[in-house]
Design a binder for these strands. Structure first.
Length: 416
RNA sequence: GGAGGGGUUCCCGAGUGGCCAAAGGGAGCAGACUGUAAAUCUGCCGGCGCAGCCUUCGCAGGUUCAAAUCCUGCCCCCUCCA
């Protein structure tokens, strides 16, 4: 992780360039400049807010984009304010979906929250981060407080939000509780007196609601710094868990590397910009190289994959992941580290095991039927030899590597 | 409160008595090709040691030789009118 800088350690231009990097929209940008200037003058760091709702257990790179932006602010000497939306998460955020998210219990949310915070502090300096749960204020509000909060908004205003509008037009349900969500997020900004709020561009509406609420209580309104929505590995849809097109924060280095190699070429620059720390001038070089053909897209992507692994692990892991990838995909060889699967003698009949059973036991197929199909399609190998007969009874032998497809392996160990 | 529409295999969605383990698309998996786990093409895509059998179409019953399809009750969702 880069060292934190003190406020004003870099020029205002540099500071702005770092903040703008990969940002899709900053609104209003003039206000951001004013705030930055004032911060320098008064030696008062900006309070930069990021709210996360711990609705899932697993974080992926898409979640991380605004977090990395917060890291940037922190490194520039500003005050990070991380809000864990333990209350908002129980509501279900309508963001970008046309189905209401199923509500979580508060206990589930708190359990998730712990994991989140731990993961996020891999990127944020805990000492320079104010961590708050929004249940701290929402948990204390009475019904009349809620009504008062609601009175700040009109239905028409709320329906301006694109997602609500779409659902309204298409006859999809909009839960009343969902209408409250933007107000809650906005109220968070009031509570922490945010100068800047970060988020994906899908948060724009909510961030603007925060500005309105702040103005109403006489606070200087926050500035929104929105990141684009990171596209997933397919290059078409938003990175999301349910679509399965994601790189998880918990993915091992080889997975991260391989998944990165699978993104469409057009996505490379966005990933470079949003996820890596490769300098802006170097990015220009890469862009030019790709454009004039002097840089092979494969090489640009290999570097990207390394950079990404490096950011989440380290250089050593990145190089190892690359070696693994080359071995499995370029040379079509068995990787160095193959998980072992132990076969106990009880699963053998006269020292043999049916190939389908072998695959199931090795976790390479979900059922005998699936295993049969894999064999029938020529997708199964024993020590590199394709198995063609779905009825094959294999004389089990330790050390043999079973392979399904191009990249799923298991080394068999026969228990004695 | 009234009227109407609907709940199908991971998702979307066709199917209104046998030809239905259920069209089509998506996702996923495998094969070919490739710089690639991209794109494209091909195949597979409920379970069972599988030319056969078993379980599935909101839930519970019923009619029938035969039900995802018909009947009864229940649960859930949506739209319109008020």
């Amino acid at each position: 992780m880069q060292q934190g800088l003190s406020l004003g350690a870099v020029s205002l231009e540099e500071e702005l360039a770092l903040i703008r990097r990969g940002a899709e929209e900053i609104f209003p940008e003039e206000e951001l400049v004013e705030k930055l200037v004032a911060a320098r003058r008064e030696k008062r760091p900006l309070r930069v807010k990021l709210g996360v709702d711990p609705t899932a257990r697993e974080l992926h790179l898409g979640h991380l984009i605004p977090v990395l932006k917060l890291q940037t602010f922190q490194q520039l000497g500003h005050q990070a304010v991380l809000i864990i939306g333990d209350y908002t998460a129980t509501l279900g955020d309508p963001t970008g979906r046309n189905k209401a998210r199923p509500p979580l219990t508060h206990d589930q949310v708190l359990a998730n929250a712990e994991g989140y915070a731990a993961q996020l502090f891999r990127f944020l300096d805990p000492k320079g981060t104010e961590l708050v749960y929004n249940g701290r204020w929402f948990g204390q509000m009475g019904f009349h407080d809620v009504i008062r909060l609601l009175s700040h908004m009109t239905l028409a205003r709320m329906l301006e939000r694109e997602d609500f509008q779409n659902r309204w037009k298409n006859g999809f349900p909009i839960g009343l509780h969902e209408l409250v969500y933007p107000l809650m997020q906005g109220y968070d900004s009031v509570q922490v007196r945010a100068d800047v709020e970060l988020g994906g561009i899908d948060q724009k509406f909510n961030i603007l609601v925060g500005r309105d609420l702040q103005k109403e209580v006489g606070q200087p309104p926050q500035v929104g710094v929105c990141s684009p929505i990171l596209l997933g590995l397919d290059g078409k849809e938003k990175m999301s868990k349910s679509l399965g097109n994601y790189i998880a924060l918990s993915d091992p280095p080889e997975e991260m590397y391989g998944k990165t190699m699978s993104i469409p070429d057009e996505l490379m620059m966005q990933y470079y910009e949003l996820i890596t720390t490769v300098s802006l001038s170097e990015l220009d070089g890469i862009r030019r190289g790709l454009a004039d053909g002097s840089l092979h897209p494969r090489d640009a992507k290999r570097r990207l994959a390394r950079e990404i692994v490096m950011r989440f692990y380290n250089e050593e892991a990145a190089l190892a992941a690359e070696a693994h990838f080359d071995r499995v995909h370029k040379e079509r060889e068995i990787p160095a580290d193959v998980p072992e699967v132990v076969l106990d003698t009880a699963s053998l009949k006269e020292g043999r095991i049916w190939i389908a059973q072998l695959l199931v036991r090795a976790g390479l197929a979900a059922s005998n039927s699936e295993a049969r199909r894999l064999v029938a399609q020529g997708g199964v190998r024993l020590d590199g030899e394709v198995v063609t007969d779905p009825e094959f009874d294999w004389p089990a032998r330790s050390g043999v590597v079973v392979q399904v497809g191009k990249r799923r392996f298991a080394r068999i160990v026969v228990a004695s």
